[in-house]
Each structure stands twice: as structure tokens, then as C-alpha cells.
Amino acid sequence: MQLETISCNKTSKKNVPLYERPRERLLRQGAEPLLDAELLAILLRTGLENESSFDLAQRLLASFGDLRNLSQATHEELTQVKGIGPVKAIELHAAFELGRRLVKHSRKERPVIRLPRDVADLMAPDLAHLTQEHFVCLFLNTKNQVIGKQTIFVGSLDASIVHPREVFKEAIKRSSASIICLHNHPSGDPAPSREDVAVTKTLYEVGELIGISLLDHVIIGDGRYVSLKEQGYL
């Protein structure tokens, strides 16, 4: 591979092979293999006249000892480092705060679905008061923990409208082991219609083919619910 060269300083980005530049490495290999300094260099974007963003990132890490200490640095402490102005300091604070929030979110206990009552307790507060039918899918992992939810369709339920493609596209995206479908009946009566049963059977058959099981289809009414699994439709 040819290298771009420039006659000025050796630390210039122009002297760095394309395959060693952090942005290009991330695009080619993903973020995980990159060093802390490389990820920081992407956030910093630019260095100084005689210093690349990667060199600046290395110096920044050295100034605080490690990434943990850097993440706890104040705005004033960051801007004391040559090359880190107010804007770069703010951007670093924002990036570290996003990381902290992601950790907090991942530590939250995920709901576990064992019975249809668990589905109703989890979702009835969101669905029971709605004036239109909302068809929602819960995506579960191998421990029956809810790892995501998605409203697939709003309106009267019909097998030709609630297409398995949309349901299982979301399930595959989340690496789901199984799914639970549910929808509300604005009338308050959760008794399943023929369309409800038809949709359930279609989704069940598709799920069996692709290896993502439909565990249940729960209909939410006014203070009541119906499980199509308990009704014998699954």
C-alpha cells in the first residue's frame, strides 16, 4: 500500500499510512480493536501544527495517567493541556457522560416474562387507555428477559397489514431468542377476533421456520386481558 508523504514534520497525519489512521482503522476493523488513544484521536479530530490528533490523544492520556482519570477531569483541568481548548473539553465531557449513562442503563434489571400476567402487568399501563389498536412486540433473550419492545402497527388488526417481515426484522436486529406479541382493544373487551387468531397463527408458523418462537399473543382490554396461548391457539 502506498503511503502519502509530506516533507514537513514526521508526526503529521500525512506521514501516517491510511491503514494506521484511527478513522480508517475503525471503518475497516470496527471500534473494538482500537487503542484508547486512537478512539480519543477520533473525538479530538485535530491536533496541533506539529502534532497529530493521535499524538495529542497519547499526551492527554499521559497527563492524567489513564482513561478513568481522564473521564473524571474537570473542564479547567482539560483546558490546561496544550491543544485542548474549550470546545474539545466540552466534547470530551459529553462523550464520557454518554458512556456513564450507557453503563447505568445496562445495569437496570430487565423484566422477566414467565406468565401472561407478567405481560399484562408490564404493558397494560401503556396500552389500556389508547383509542386506537396498537400492535406491539416484546423481544426476549434466552432467559425470557425483555431486551426491547417495538410498536409494529397502529390501526385495526389484519393479517395482510401486520406482516411477519416487519415483526421478525426487528427480532433479528435485536438477536432475540423469542417474541411476545400484544395489542389493545379500545372497546375494553379483550376477546380475540378472527383476525387476531389469524395473525397469531401466521406469526407462530413463521417464527418456527426461522427459529424465533412466538411465545404468546396477549390482548389488553379494560382491566382484563386474554392470552391466546392460554386459549389454545398456540
Results as ranks from 00 to 15, higher is better:
77 E>H: 02
193 S>W: 00
139 F>N: 14
84 I>W: 07
164 P>D: 10
133 E>Y: 06
160 S>C: 01
112 V>L: 13
90 I>W: 12
88 K>D: 06
102 L>H: 13
112 V>D: 03
170 E>I: 06
143 K>G: 03
177 A>E: 15
160 S>R: 12
112 V>E: 15
155 G>N: 02
196 D>T: 07
109 E>M: 09
154 V>S: 15
102 L>W: 06
149 K>L: 09
167 V>M: 13
145 Q>I: 03
80 Q>A: 01
104 K>G: 08
180 I>G: 12
182 L>C: 06
99 G>M: 12
171 A>V: 08
91 E>P: 07
145 Q>G: 06
88 K>T: 14
157 L>P: 11
101 R>G: 03
83 G>R: 07
186 P>K: 01
110 R>C: 02
159 A>F: 00
180 I>W: 13
113 I>T: 01
107 R>C: 14
112 V>K: 15
105 H>W: 08
162 V>E: 08
178 S>I: 12
123 M>W: 10
189 D>W: 11
104 K>M: 13
196 D>K: 06
88 K>C: 06
163 H>L: 13
126 D>A: 12
197 V>E: 00
171 A>E: 11
109 E>Y: 10
170 E>V: 14
161 I>D: 11
112 V>P: 10
138 L>S: 00
150 Q>C: 04
107 R>H: 15
185 H>M: 09
98 L>T: 13
84 I>K: 07
119 V>S: 02
94 A>H: 11
76 E>T: 07
110 R>D: 06
109 E>C: 10
132 Q>L: 02
180 I>T: 11
86 P>T: 08
134 H>Y: 09
133 E>H: 13
161 I>P: 07
161 I>W: 14
77 E>I: 00
192 P>S: 01
192 P>W: 03
130 L>P: 13
77 E>T: 01
102 L>D: 10
189 D>I: 04
137 C>A: 15
163 H>C: 05
184 N>Y: 11
145 Q>D: 09
105 H>Y: 09
76 E>H: 04
156 S>W: 13
194 R>H: 09
126 D>L: 15
154 V>L: 05
181 C>L: 14
181 C>M: 15
80 Q>R: 04
97 E>Y: 12
113 I>G: 02
122 L>A: 12
100 R>Q: 11
102 L>C: 09
84 I>E: 08
132 Q>N: 05
79 T>N: 01
76 E>W: 03
126 D>G: 00
93 H>L: 04
125 P>Y: 02
139 F>D: 05
85 G>I: 04
85 G>N: 11
169 K>I: 08
78 L>R: 04
187 S>H: 10
152 I>E: 00
93 H>N: 12
194 R>G: 04
169 K>N: 07
119 V>Q: 00
104 K>E: 08
132 Q>G: 00
76 E>M: 06
76 E>Y: 09
112 V>T: 14
119 V>F: 05
152 I>P: 01
151 T>Y: 02
116 P>Y: 05
195 E>A: 12
138 L>D: 09
193 S>N: 01
101 R>L: 11
152 I>K: 05
124 A>Y: 04
179 I>Y: 02
118 D>M: 10
178 S>G: 11
77 E>L: 04
82 K>R: 10
110 R>Q: 12
196 D>S: 09
87 V>S: 09
181 C>A: 15
148 G>C: 05
151 T>W: 05
164 P>V: 13
166 E>W: 01
114 R>P: 03
126 D>C: 00
84 I>D: 05
